[in-house]
Design a protein around this nucleic acid. Structure first.
Lengths: 232, 232
DNA sequence: GATATTATCAATCCAAAGATGTAGGACAAA
DNA sequence: TTTGTCCTACATCTTTGGATTGATAATATC
């Protein structure tokens, strides 16, 4: 009961009307993709995405106005499974990183050969994520630098290592916003015991109160936050 | 005044003695790299790295015991510019992600062809970061999934938007671990005023105390943390 | 000009948090 | 056996934090 394989449908969003026309022509002539709509406005693009439900969106993102990134995020939030490829004139590492972070399935430079764009579309259409090799390198350098600065900045010893297992449990509950009563209830121990632990934690982490303890924990790799956290 | 290009020097670390011997032979026979030392122990490996200062380290990382990752991290901390390529039997996305996060310049599967390993060494030796295409895909899927879960989980409105400018200032100081007195001093206002602001913040963020307010702020994009933060 | 918002400050009261000292039992290492 | 660490628990006391109510002045907003 397979459907006939139909041509993948593409929506183009690019505030440069000339470039928009060029890309449309390119796709129409040199590929098997069907351009179902084009627009120079990010906002209209979002509506067109809802209306036409394309397989792929080619989204222009420019450096100065970062509407493109916002538009990607908005469309991703629709959760319609539309695959977005970012098209940009800039190979800026931060821009690449942000685009990938918010869910772009590809990132292609405008200066790249048309064959590369179509190849990217093929890869993305088949469910893969496509980044040209050069941009992948950029991405990883940026990615690793972000983490490196973090670990070298925190050059001092990690006071968290001095905590006992129980103290770590208590601290973990502190980093979830619990008060003494809450922690006592969750660990099935008395409130006074929790106080003892918390005071020991303060001593070991060299802080004065729970907020500072929580901040210390989060800033020094306490395995609490489940996932990535990074400013967009 | 260029130096003569010398053969890149390689250190092998692999707890499987057989595999270690195999890789050494492979490199010696099929490449121009010089194997300066080999060891089956991660700890000894770290000392050998200090002693021989190789250009590249091939580091075996196994899934169950994650000593390999720790060793990579330790060597990275030496900051000697040694390029580490992770060798693993597993194409586990999480493992790949962690290895790259802590600074591995490459990740190659043991099952891959020997040519691929040597190609990876060439790329890494020349300053690039090398991930086989298949693993790059794995990486990005994992990478994007991490962020996606985050954004879809935080689907609710961001209560931070209701804060006034002054309240944001106060919250910012809270997220730095200040108490009432500290905030009052820094903003040149009375402690009671700070209390008023803080209470308003609690109402708006729907939390009960400062720790929860701080956690809410950090978890909802309060532009405080400078960099990536993710469990290792 | 009236209204709403914001920032400032105060008094009061109660609850929670934090500091300090003490102590028993479990367990492991020396 | 002794020593040390850890987890547990309590008492006491001081300080800080949080809730509530009310008030004034400045600034927008309408």
């Amino acid at each position: 009961m397979r459907e006939f394989k139909r041509r993948s449908r593409v929506l183009l969003i690019d505030d440069n009307a000339d470039h928009l026309r060029g890309v449309k022509e390119l796709i129409t002539l040199e590929s098997s993709y069907e351009v179902v709509a084009t627009t120079t406005s990010a906002n209209i693009g979002i509506n067109l995405a809802k209306k036409y439900r394309p397989d792929i969106i080619l989204m222009d993102i420019n450096m100065p106005e970062k509407d493109g990134l916002q538009a990607i995020q908005d469309i991703e939030k629709l959760d319609m499974g539309i695959k977005i490829i970012a098209l940009s004139g800039y190979d800026d590492a931060d821009l690449i990183f942000r685009a990938m972070k918010i869910g772009a399935k590809g990132y292609v430079l405008k200066t790249m050969a048309s064959a590369q764009l179509i190849y990217a579309m093929d890869e993305v259409a088949s469910g893969k994520i496509y980044l040209p090799t050069a941009l992948t390198s950029r991405f990883f350098e940026y990615f690793q630098r972000s983490f490196k600065e973090e670990t070298t900045a925190n050059n001092q010893e990690n006071l968290l290592t001095y905590l006992t297992a129980r103290e770590e449990e208590v601290l973990d509950l502190l980093t979830q916003g619990n008060n003494y009563k809450g922690i006592a209830g969750k660990l099935f121990i008395s409130e006074t015991t929790v106080k003892t632990h918390v005071n020991n934690i303060f001593q070991k982490l060299q802080v004065n109160d729970r907020t500072q303890a929580v901040l210390y924990a989060l800033n020094n790799g306490f395995a609490n936050r489940r996932h990535v956290k990074m400013a967009v």
